[in-house]
């Protein structure tokens, strides 16, 4: 608003222009880096998929021909099918259980102020830093002390414990970003705390809850260390693969791997659609 009578003139700084050659070199270097990175990430998966259709037991070049035999064998392998079924059962139950405990825990951490809150927050998140071996052994000891028989259910409890940290951190991060004024506005407009939670808080953390759930599912699905200690007679899919791998990689395993990649892709697409937030 206020302007002095004489405006001092400031010379515009001279911008150094990069030459076309320099820019081309920089762009090429960057693109090459990205290409190498993508190759590093995805070539192993392509190899897995290709060999699952290869008409030979040995995993060597050149490819000998196309076959669906390994997929047919999968179809007839009841042990493998049981393992897949077990993995789905464990991952689903562990996810539901961890969400049921984790979401309220995150809300409590966000909303309530109580002595020892910081300690509680650290304790909830700590298991994420513990190696699975430690979680596995300690839970095994606990179940022994309590006299539980090892089974898929003990695996579920173990996974749910280990995954709690994932859910709490994800949901907490979202709650931190949710303006406090939204809940206040809801109360101001006549809503009770429960009504506010259902109609305001939950819809706004929905995508974080779904995301944490999917991540938990995937982590539980391919978990080995905790499962190793806590399972009874039943095997999950990664455990089954691990045990057959001792006799070498078979094309059947490649076929399972390909199916899992396909399933993961479907999950990812579902996750993207479900968690697509409206712009704020």
């Amino acid at each position: 608003m206020v302007m002095t009578l004489s405006t001092p003139r400031v010379a515009a700084p001279v911008k150094k222009k990069r030459s076309v050659v320099q820019r081309f070199a920089a762009d090429t270097a960057f693109m090459t880096f990205v290409a190498i990175l993508m190759a590093f990430l995805y070539i192993p998966i392509w190899i897995l998929i290709i060999f699952s259709f290869n008409d030979s037991r040995s995993l060597t070049w050149p490819l000998s021909g196309f076959t669906l035999e390994w997929y047919q064998r999968l179809w007839n392998n009841s042990q493998l099918q049981d393992a897949i079924g077990n993995s789905f059962y464990v991952a689903s139950c562990a996810t539901v259980l961890t969400l049921l405990v984790g979401v309220p825990a995150a809300l409590a951490l966000h909303r309530l102020h109580f002595p020892g809150k910081t300690v509680f927050r650290r304790l909830v998140v700590l298991p994420i830093t513990l190696p699975g071996v430690v979680t596995g052994i300690s839970m095994l000891n606990l179940f022994r002390v309590l006299g539980f028989d090892l089974s898929l259910e003990t695996v579920i409890l173990g996974h749910a414990t280990a995954l709690l940290a994932v859910v709490v951190t994800q949901v907490s991060a979202r709650l931190e970003r949710l303006p406090k004024s939204l809940e206040e506005a809801s109360a101001d407009l006549g809503a009770t705390q429960i009504y506010t939670f259902i109609h305001i808080t939950l819809p706004n953390i929905r995508s974080a809850v779904i995301g944490a759930g999917l991540l938990s599912f995937v982590l539980s699905f391919d978990e080995i260390p905790v499962t190793f200690f806590l399972t009874g007679r039943d095997n999950t899919l990664p455990m089954y693969i691990y045990s057959t791998m001792r006799r070498g990689v078979t094309p059947e395993i490649n076929a399972v791997g390909t199916l899992i990649v396909l399933f993961s892709l479907i999950l990812i697409v579902a996750a993207v659609i479900a968690t697509r937030d409206r712009k704020h």
């Binding site: 303006p179 004024s181 939204l182 206040e184 506005a185 809801s186 101001d188 305001i200 409206r278």
Partner: peptide
């Protein structure tokens, strides 16, 4: 029986 207009408006985004 009072209502508030918040500084950041606090409109429900969803």
């Amino acid at each position: 029986d009072v209502n508030m207009v918040f500084q950041d408006y606090a409109l429900f985004p969803h």
